[in-house]
Amino acid sequence: MDNSILLEVVTPERLLLSKPVQMVMAVGSDGAMGILPHHTHLLTGLKIDALRWLEGTVEKKAFISGGLMEVTPEKVSVLAESAELEEEINKERVLEARKRAEDRIAKAKTGAPDIDLLRAENALRRAISRLKILN
């Protein structure tokens, strides 16, 4: 029995990844989960966080900015609005983005009207989980 499952990560801009893996680990709306080959059918939302998977025994990571995951026994499809492989993340840019987001949140809390707190918080969350992947 073939002990692998096809992992596909699609974003609007590109097909990020499509390869057989041994296990997928994701953070769904209801918490973290691990998916092995021959998993039952499952649909879930994904949080802004890392997606991890095993290629053989090597663990790889990618950043997912929220989205959906559809699991069938043969295939895991991840639909994300944006996603990056670990090696594509630029640390300096993430640090900048984190600073920008923090500034915006600080400003929004002092009552600047033109700043969307929710969006700033989401930006911060994205920056933090990108950093988490790098470290």
Binding site: G28, H41, L42, T44, G45, L68
Partner: peptide
């Protein structure tokens, strides 16, 4: 037609993906 496990719930998930 396959029975899916849906998390958190079909309604919540639809709420999340309709805007998208």
């Amino acid at each position: 037609v396959i029975d899916y496990i849906i998390e958190p719930s079909a309604e919540d998930l639809v709420g999340e993906i309709l805007p998208r």
